[in-house]
Design a protein around this nucleic acid. Structure first.
Lengths: 151, 151
DNA sequence: TTGACATCATTGCAAATGCAATGAAATACT
DNA sequence: AGTATTTCATTGCATTTGCAATGATGTCAA
């Protein structure tokens, strides 16, 4: 086992590396949710995000959603297109500013959302249970990080 | 403003929804790092992960890395191929089990890693500074969540 | 030993993704 | 008013991605 390496590598603990940990965990959770949503409603995560936004943010434009949920505008556009095709939401051009496309729920979309939201809540509750007192700490940390990130 | 919606939607706070928040933050950080790595070393995040793993986990196989850093095996395979093409690591078939491909750093790869690791550390230190006391809380929460996730 | 099954790395291929280009509409400037 | 610049949403296109083969090797049991 005589290693012929000149200088040793600097210390590094990948398992404790925060960006990496966050990425892994987020991917994990996302995958979980993606499976649930796809299995039950044939909806992608991006579509779910758009749907929720439309439901809870009045009648946002594509740009609004892009900013609000940090989703590429092309992704938003395509998600909206699919949701429209599936009959979950309607597009109409804003009369005040005709560049904008205002998105709104159809009754069917509203029904879907009514059905999905409890699932999402349940999932979060599950996480909350797993975390116990760590839950609020995690939320606080995320808030802090998100705030300080953009300045 | 007479809304003709029958039943109101159930309450839901997307901004406080943990899976969503994690995804946004993780994507953000990843993008940051990706830009840095690409700009300076022409390395993707996946490649960075593989590189670090090879550097700090002996001579792992593709499968080892897949498990350890939760990266699709095809992604690992392709990342390894690119890293090999770039001269950063070497592949050799394990003599004990010839299905396995053992990955190891070349001197060039070792040099690269030596150069990159401090950058990664600095980035994490930046985050630590932003978070202050929240930092350890965040790490603890992530640990708890990762543990309880798989059972 | 032989044959059925499991594990590993790679690759083919269809779908998803991100970026840049496009075109339409609004705003700013002169 | 007329022109340049900016802001939107969509779409083209090249790259990336993930899943399902594929083929090569190992393991297990009869």
């Amino acid at each position: 086992m005589t290693e012929m390496n000149g200088k040793p590598l600097p210390e590094f603990d990948l398992d404790g590396y925060l960006p990496y940990r966050l990425a892994v965990l987020a991917t994990d959770l996302s995958k979980d949710l993606a499976d649930q949503y796809r299995a039950r409603f044939d909806i992608s995560v991006a579509e779910w995000r758009v749907l929720v936004n439309v439901g809870y943010a009045g009648t946002p434009s594509v740009r609004d959603i892009e900013r609000r949920v940090s989703l590429e505008k092309s992704k938003v556009s395509r998600a909206a297109a699919r949701l429209e095709a599936a009959g979950y939401l309607a597009k109409c051009t804003d009369q005040a500013d005709r560049r904008l496309v205002k998105l709104s729920l159809t009754p069917k979309g509203r029904a879907l959302l009514t059905e999905i939201v409890p699932l999402a809540e349940a999932y979060q509750q599950q996480i909350r249970d797993m975390l116990g007192p760590h839950y609020q700490a995690l939320q606080d940390a995320l808030t802090t990080l998100m705030e300080k990130k953009n300045l």
